[in-house]
Nucleic acid binder design. Structure first.
Lengths: 191, 191
DNA sequence: TTCCTTCCTTACTTGTAGGTAAGTATACGC
DNA sequence: GCGTATACTTACCTACAAGTAAGGAAGGAA
């Protein structure tokens, strides 16, 4: 057993590529060459590309769970949660992951298996559940001010961030901070 | 000269495919087969795929200009403009064009020429200019209520719609109406 | 020592992608 | 009727994609 297994390296590399180019935008070669392994080594760990994609979605989902579990369990102030989401998004873009998993899959949606669609769907569901709780908490504790159902507002913010990420990619990075600022303004956050 | 030229048919078919699957998600075959022509016929009109993409972006831009020119020239009430954007978005999704051009290009961004990036950028710029004017007009005429710079608000709404479109694709269509409703609420629109 | 499992490589196959060169049918000006 | 564009088709090429079958090294269990 190495310090970092080949399997982990494959996932890391594929994850990066997936969030840069989408599923159809990279090949096994793009993974194997930089890792100095052969294509067949990838097929050993992930018999086909959909198995690899499954692992990537699971990885993504796992990261979400880890970073939100504490708040989901014990609650606390909402503002840092929202700011955490903003920071995470900025960070991802700066680390060469300009598009998010959901955005990447939207384009390649036609050739996804039902199992993968379901996994992706449950990722969205979990994100939404988390942000809804954040919004609810923020409203109760007078941190945020907004009209309309909490869940609907959360959905709107998720959509905004996702769209912002795309626009940042094809336009300019500054857009992200600008849009985050507007979300804050819309929530009546002044500081 | 036919009623609908082959060139137009190619553009129409490619446009549809582009907004369904992204640039890397369709091939010349996907265009030529349903039109009962040969791949080489496409290459005759568009020597390579980038030339085709250029035409698609131009087409998209042209559609925007046509549908917004009247308001840009003479002004008028802002609310129907915003609703027009919502309707257009819903309509596109229902017509099998779930992702927008900007979203489709975001994924394939790595292999775009500078000329195409620029064309896409100017499309975003024009969209933004239009929506900014709508927001400005709406605020002046007391149709919309919001805090923050007009342009920043417009940018936020564009991002939201774009993200909503993606989420609708991978989750469910209802999301669109829900998010549009939230945008209205955030703008203080009650009716 | 032998056998079995794990993790990979070598050496392929098949399919399809974008792209090209040369030929052909049709219409139009002259 | 005679060239000459225009708008294609036929027939091809090269590159590369995903995927597979068979073999080999290395380690642990018997």
């Amino acid at each position: 057993m190495q310090v970092v297994t080949t399997r982990e390296q494959i996932i890391n590399q594929a994850f990066q590529l997936m969030l840069q180019r989408g599923l159809n935008g990279f090949s096994y070669r793009d993974i194997s060459e930089p890792l100095r392994i052969k294509n067949a080594a990838i097929h050993y760990h992930f018999p086909n590309k959909m198995d690899l994609l499954s692992a990537l979605i699971a990885e993504n989902h796992q990261l979400l769970r880890e970073s939100t579990s504490e708040f989901m369990a014990y609650g606390g102030p909402a503002r840092p949660q929202l700011e955490g989401l903003f920071d995470y998004t900025l960070n991802q873009c700066e680390c060469g992951r300009p598009i998010c998993m959901v955005g990447a899959l939207a384009v390649d949606y036609k050739d996804l298996s039902d199992k993968i669609k379901q996994a992706n769907d449950s990722f969205i569901h979990d994100s939404l559940t988390w942000l809804t709780k954040v919004m609810e908490t923020g409203r109760e504790q007078d941190e945020f001010h907004f009209e309309g159902p909490t869940k609907r507002k959360a959905m709107g913010i998720l959509a905004t961030i996702q769209g912002a990420r795309q626009m940042a990619r094809v336009h300019s990075m500054d857009i992200l901070n600008s849009i985050f600022a507007q979300i804050r303004t819309d929530l009546g956050i002044t500081s």
